[in-house]
Design a binder for these strands. Structure first.
Length: 155
DNA sequence: GCCAACGTTGGC
DNA sequence: GCCAACGTTGGC
């Protein structure tokens, strides 16, 4: 059964435009360093799942496009790279701590900004909007997915 | 740059 | 296993 996710990316690192410009519009989702987010990727995601592509840590945070999960899991190579900000000295290739999946961008949308999300009663209980929520990957209910994609795609 | 909120680490 | 100290996230 298809599930839905919201995945945060800093547009300075990889914006929806960057993802769309990549080969096959597909990017490896590197840099997840939180166990709960990792476990979502490892245990719950399936190829084909829907993704809300969210821009974070930027002047206008919000949902910027639609994507889909495009691969299984594999070790995130940045954890082994001492030059990477995501380097994890406690991880080894024998027992990698951190995983990634490929994400394929499908469409850039208008920006559905954080203030607008917060002001939308239908979305009030999104995990993203919970007080203190910082997870970079959060599940999205089918109802929220339908509502948001309808807002963004019309029809 | 600030800071609230949360996660991780490590001594005990 | 507790919990204080520290680090990180991310909106503002």
């Amino acid at each position: 059964m298809t599930a839905y996710w919201l995945m945060k990316s800093e547009p300075d690192e990889c914006s929806i435009d960057d993802a769309l410009a990549a080969p096959q519009a597909t990017v490896p989702w590197t840099g997840v360093r939180n166990y709960q987010a990792r476990n979502f990727m490892r245990d719950a995601m399936q190829p084909g799942d829907g993704v809300l592509f969210y821009h974070s840590s930027c002047p206008q945070p919000g949902i910027a496009g639609l994507a889909r999960v495009a691969s299984g899991t594999r070790p995130d190579p940045t954890q082994f790279d001492p030059a990477s900000p995501y380097f994890d000295p406690k991880s080894t290739p024998d027992a990698p701590r951190w995983l990634l999946r490929d994400v394929q961008a499908l469409k850039k949308t208008r920006l559905l900004g954080l203030p607008e999300l917060r002001a939308t009663p239908e979305l009030a209980d999104m995990v993203l909007l919970r007080r203190g929520s910082r997870l970079s990957i959060t599940p999205v209910s089918e109802a929220h997915w339908r509502f948001i994609t309808q807002q963004l795609l019309g029809g």
